[in-house]
Computed example of a mutant assay.
Amino acid sequence: MRLCVYRDGGTRLGVVDGGDVVDVTDLAPAFGVPGPLHAVLEHGIDLARLRPDGRPRRPLADVELLAPLPRPGKIVAAPVNYRDHQAEMDAPLTVAELGVFLKAPSSVIGPGGTVTLPYTDLRTDQEAELAAVIGRTARDVPEAEALSYVAGYTCLLDITVRSTEDRSTRKSFDTFTPIGPWLTTPDEVGDPGGLDLRCWVGGTPRQSATTADLIFGVARLIAYASSVMTLWPGDVIATGTPAGVGPIHDGDRIVMEIERVGRLEVGVSGAGARPYATRPGARAVVAS
């Protein structure tokens, strides 16, 4: 099952069925800003109950898809979780030594959105990732049981400024976490450790890998993260990016695709970008 959130006279919850979206909003609990899918997960509703039989449907191309989880409780991300990316970045440590970090929920945008570049003179990169969405509360979960806590999978772009700040700062600018286009349930995805992942920027291939090359696979990552913090329904686990990250520029289109999960596309804008030295908190230059 593929579950989407879309706009059609209001925010709606839909099941993607072929080329159509079927409205199942009436099966969701009352919801606010976090959205109907988040409400379904928080209330522990079995996703299999959101059946599209006999319900209103529209062509998928006629609706505006939104982020399936526009305000997750937290985004837990894995740094340096592919060996080829470790080599590319000349990073001495991996997720095994670095642990996980958090991204701001306010950085989320949906499919068709626009990544806004903050600086004119610093490199900003795309990082395409498989994301797992937590379906029930998880704390100290054994690795062997971890996948049973996953409600589904989606595509995620971890946009990153190459600066000196901590990861949580340079990856948390508004618009820096595109998610979508929908949540695909585990029964359709199968083994999350054997999915092809690809990414293009401006039509040029950038990343091509398989999640089999993850250092911490999805289950180990959930087990590790849940040993540190309680994971709640609707939390997003970003599993890390393979080699092929590179600079993005004003006017670019970023497209990523994960086998059996989905295809996510966003734009890039440099409108409003400013020199790094003019940011709040920048050290003043003292004349000699």
Rank of each mutant, 00 (worst) to 15 (best):
S269L: 00
E143K: 14
I109W: 09
L13Q: 02
L37P: 05
H43W: 02
L60S: 03
A96R: 15
A138P: 12
R136L: 07
N81G: 13
T137W: 00
V189H: 03
T94N: 14
R57W: 04
A128N: 09
T230K: 00
I179E: 10
D90Q: 13
I258V: 15
Y153R: 10
V76W: 09
L231F: 04
L41N: 01
A131Q: 12
R263G: 03
V218C: 15
S163D: 15
L147K: 04
A225R: 02
V150D: 02
G203V: 09
S163R: 10
Q86Y: 00
P275W: 08
L3A: 06
G113R: 08
V255K: 08
L102C: 05
L66V: 09
D252P: 05
E127N: 10
R260C: 03
V115D: 12
L214K: 05
G19K: 11
L221D: 02
A225C: 09
D140A: 12
P34K: 05
V108K: 13
A61F: 02
V24Q: 06
R263K: 12
V108F: 07
I159M: 14
V286D: 06
G244P: 06
L195A: 02
C199H: 09
P181G: 03
R274D: 01
M229H: 08
D90P: 02
G267A: 02
D174R: 15
F101K: 04
P111A: 12
F216D: 14
I237P: 06
T137R: 15
L93A: 09
R274Q: 13
R136A: 06
Y224R: 15
L183E: 06
A39R: 08
L147W: 03
D84G: 07
Y149A: 00
E127H: 10
R220C: 09
P192R: 08
G112W: 02
A128G: 15
S226K: 11
R198Y: 07
V108T: 08
D53Q: 09
P192V: 03
P178N: 10
P205C: 04
D84L: 13
T278E: 12
T169V: 14
G99F: 00
C155N: 15
L156Q: 07
W232P: 01
G135D: 00
D62T: 14
G202T: 07
